[in-house]
Design a protein around this nucleic acid. Sequence first.
DNA 1: AAACGCTGTTCGGCAATAGCGAACGGAGGA
DNA 2: TCCTCCGTTCGCTATTGCCGAACAGCGTTT
Lengths: 261, 261
Amino acid sequence: MVQSVARAIEILRVLGSSARGAGVTEVAERLGVAKPTAHALLRTLEAGQLVSQDHETGKYRLGPALLELGNAYLETHELRVRSVAWADGLANRANEAVWVGVLSRDHLLVVHHAFRPEGAVQILEVGAVLPWHTSALGKAIAAHLPELALATLLNGPLPALTGATITDPHALSGQLETVRSSGYAVEDGEAAIGDAGIAAPVFDHTGDPVGAIGVVGPVERLLDAPTRDALAVAVRETARHLSRDLGASRPAARRWVAAAS
Amino acid sequence: MVQSVARAIEILRVLGSSARGAGVTEVAERLGVAKPTAHALLRTLEAGQLVSQDHETGKYRLGPALLELGNAYLETHELRVRSVAWADGLANRANEAVWVGVLSRDHLLVVHHAFRPEGAVQILEVGAVLPWHTSALGKAIAAHLPELALATLLNGPLPALTGATITDPHALSGQLETVRSSGYAVEDGEAAIGDAGIAAPVFDHTGDPVGAIGVVGPVERLLDAPTRDALAVAVRETARHLSRDLGASRPAARRWVAAAS
DNA sequence: AAACGCTGTTCGGCAATAGCGAACGGAGGA
DNA sequence: TCCTCCGTTCGCTATTGCCGAACAGCGTTT
């Protein structure tokens, strides 16, 4: 592990979380390093356009190259590229907004967002992150993770975003069992009050879950019966098709293995 | 300058340009370093999720954290945040797609994209980059840059993307003079055949250009008189309003200074 | 008005640490 | 079965990143 690079990455995280940028002194304090050390790292990052310095205040903030690289990540992302057509189809069929997401550490990262066909103004959520246990996408992925990886997630922090957020590992674990048997995950106001989601996992040819696809929208539209069941079927079918696109020979093969053990 | 960090950034660039990822050996060769060196850097970047390794082939690719950071860059970006409302207004008034962009090295980076109101399927271009001299946005910014910065751009490489791309520094310099006097820049098939753009620069309170805003679309719709003049007026007005939003006390103050010298 | 406290920045020397050559384990092809 | 290529690990060397101290500029305070 290269120490200076690890510190440089930490700097990016610090700058990303402090909205108005940060000065050298503040960065040095947060990293626990000397001021000149932080300065050298910042200058190097600046040369690569990963951070940029405000010529007025001297403060540093994230740089444009990150947007470029983030875009490059999207374009080379197998799941994202293949999902675009399927996401559009699902959005039309369900008449709801569709998200495609992957797991990044303990957060769900939205890599594609198909707008609701009839929707009014909607903001694009690509690049947005939220704690895995507060989204249907995240739960769909987690439910099919190898045991060890799942245990790590359940033992990690489970922050509450609303009163409905499930913060108890045992309750979550039980819900994931339901996800495995039903083939889809549901979220009801756990990330934001009034918002819900229904999602299903997407697998590749290795049988591991690489992401999830699902619909998001207001509780009233998504979770009222019988709409809810119809949406679940549509989401699950789309996820299966997408998985097959990615080379998954048998959808849900992993599930049977898990059930047999 | 921290050598290892500079190399790590270079690795990100390498992985971003090679679509299908790259192996340790290939990365080491491209950087001109030993294989273990590249390996250590890659492992560190992987720990920070800036790159991820394909567990099948062993090859490395860009990682999800870059998308997160790219999104964080957008959200903290003053110009981008303020421009959203203005871009929507311009898109409706012009009935065309609107781009907001900034200069990143010698490329124009699209930081916001408002879709054409009546448009059919359109792909989002946020995060896209193109050589500055092949876009109206890029030329609008360049025309108002300090002399030294502009000279650097004109002396740099000016690749031709189409037959219409202007690759002669003198011709470009002359066109930038026109941009300064008219207040807007035009691009006609210089990035892609049939595509055109009309853009105007955006300033902040320091008087330096921080970006540009403009319309993009097919040549036939944008550049036919009298549509062209109406669009130019709309774009220029929007850019002035946006500039005032950012604290520019007097629009085009810099222009008068340049003219007086 | 002048001294203070706070920035971001530069310099030089010590030693931690990053970098390399060489060797290892495994996968794929001939 | 051999060979070749891959990604990876090990341990030594000196390169290089790191820190303490000092500097310049600015805003506020006294």
